[in-house]
C-alpha cells in the first residue's frame, strides 16, 4: 500500500525538530536581528531615525538638556536600514532575536548625548560629540566659534571684523 511509504519517508528524514530553547536555534549567516548602537561612535545626528520605516529609532530632546537616541525593539522590523545609512558606522546588526520581556522598558535602549548650548543665547545647537568632531575636522578659526549658534556666530564674527577695521559696533 502506498500510504505505508510514509514510514520509509519518516525513517529517512529522521527527527528534524529541536528541543528549543534547550538547543540553540538555527540562524544563518544572513540573519538580521536586533541592532546595537555604539554610544562611543554615535553622534546623535539622527540620520538613522529618518530612514527607520517603523520609527523604532527616535531622537528626543530631554528637559535636562540631553539628547537621546532611543531604540525601541518592540517596533523594530530588523531591516537594518539604519546600519546602512549611519554615517558613523555606529550601528551593528546582531543575530539576536530572543527579545521577549515582561516589561516594555526592557525593550528600550537609549544613547544619551550632551548637547552644546550657545554660550551667548543659551539655545541648543546640537549634540556635543558631533559638534566637537565636526569642529576638529574644520579646525582653525572655526573651533573658536563651535559653541555659538549660527545667529550669535554671525554677530560675533561681524563684531570682530568691525573692531578690526575700527568701526564701533
Amino acid at each position: 500500500m502506498s500510504i505505508m511509504k510514509l514510514i520509509s519517508i519518516a525513517a529517512r528524514a529522521k527527527v528534524v525538530t529541536r528541543r528549543y530553547p534547550f538547543e540553540p536555534p538555527v540562524v544563518t549567516e544572513g540573519f538580521r536581528g536586533k541592532i546595537e548602537v555604539d554610544p562611543k561612535l554615535c553622534w546623535g545626528c539622527g540620520v538613522c531615525t529618518r530612514i527607520c520605516p517603523p520609527n523604532a529609532l527616535t531622537l528626543k530632546k530631554r528637559e535636562d538638556g540631553t539628547l537621546v537616541l532611543s531604540y525601541f525593539m518592540g517596533r523594530c522590523i530588523f531591516c537594518g536600514m539604519c546600519a546602512e545609512v549611519c554615517p558613523r558606522g555606529a550601528i551593528t546588526v546582531t543575530k539576536e532575536f530572543e527579545l521577549a520581556s515582561l516589561t516594555a522598558e526592557d525593550l528600550v535602549r537609549d544613547v544619551k548625548h550632551d548637547v552644546v548650548r550657545c554660550r551667548i543665547c543659551g539655545r541648543v545647537i546640537g549634540p556635543a560629540v558631533e559638534m566637537r568632531e565636526a569642529t576638529k575636522s574644520v579646525g582653525g578659526a572655526g573651533a573658536k566659534y563651535y559653541d555659538l549658534c549660527p545667529e550669535c556666530r554671525k554677530l560675533v564674527v561681524a563684531r570682530g571684523i568691525m573692531t578690526k577695521v575700527g568701526v564701533r559696533p
Partner: peptide, 25 residues
Amino acid sequence: MHTWRVREPVMILSELITGSRKTYG
C-alpha cells in the same frame, strides 16, 4: 508535518539570501 519539513529549508534559504525568513526587507 512532512510538507512543512520539506518547506523549512526554503525558509532558511530565504533567510540566508535576504536576512529574514519572511518580510525580507
